[in-house]
Simulated assay, not measured.
Amino acid sequence: MDASGKRFAVVVSRWNELVTKELLAGALDELRRFGDPEVEVVHVPGTWEIPIVVRKLVTRDNRPDAVLALGCILQGQTPHAKLLGSDVGAALMSLQVEHGVPIAWGVLTPDTQDQALDRSGLKYGNKGREAAQAAIELASVLERL
């Protein structure tokens, strides 16, 4: 995997910032580890707003080689979180297929804040790092094809 000479965009939610700032730090560190590429970071209010920003990024002239979507949707007592996660996931999948730009899923959907923290760098690694690895690999695969 080599990120050298590639452009990446990271769209990160400010909602649940205690978690998303760690996802972002992990993603940026991982991108730098594989070649110090050009990286544009865009902050949005919440996970719901990620797809419209990603759409803008993948349809502009200087589009990135891959995008990382980072957020955290905590489950609550209503089905709101499941609906939000499903809608955002479907929108991002549609964008990446339609525009041919990989969009790495770094959106957590844990039941609790503790689970979110565990997945943003404590017990279970950092899902921002994992999203960066996926983005680098997919950008490399598409470049070879």
Rank of each mutant, 00 (worst) to 15 (best):
G71I: 08
D29Y: 07
I52S: 13
A27G: 02
A25F: 06
W15E: 07
D36V: 10
L84F: 08
D65K: 13
T109W: 08
L24F: 08
I52G: 04
H99V: 05
D61M: 07
L138E: 00
V42C: 11
D118M: 03
S120N: 08
G89L: 11
L57W: 03
A27S: 01
T20G: 03
L83D: 09
A66H: 01
A3G: 08
A9Y: 01
T47S: 15
A69I: 11
A81S: 15
E130V: 00
I136W: 03
T20I: 04
A135H: 00
V10A: 10
F8H: 02
A135I: 00
R33W: 00
V97E: 13
V141P: 00
G121V: 02
S4P: 03
D36P: 02
R33C: 03
L57H: 07
P102Y: 02
S140A: 13
N62Y: 02
L18Q: 15
Q96Y: 06
E22A: 13
I50W: 03
D36L: 13
E40P: 02
R60N: 08
N62M: 05
E137F: 01
G5L: 06
S140H: 02
N16D: 11
K21C: 14
K6Y: 05
Q133T: 07
L70V: 12
V42N: 11
V41Y: 07
E30G: 00
L84H: 12
A131L: 04
A25C: 03
R60W: 01
L142Y: 09
L138T: 00
R60M: 01
G76S: 06
G128I: 03
K123A: 14
S94Y: 14
P37N: 05
G85R: 10
R144C: 04
Q113P: 15
R144G: 05
V97P: 06
V11M: 09
D61T: 10
V141W: 04
L142N: 06
L142C: 05
A139C: 12
G100C: 07
E143M: 10
Q115M: 14
L70K: 10
N62T: 02
K123F: 11
L24C: 07
G128P: 07
E40D: 14
G26I: 04
P64S: 12
A139M: 09
A90Y: 09
G85A: 15
G125E: 00
L117Y: 11
K123E: 14
A116I: 01
R32P: 00
A69P: 05
T112I: 09
R63L: 06
L138F: 03
L95R: 09
W15K: 08
V54P: 01
E130W: 00
S4N: 10
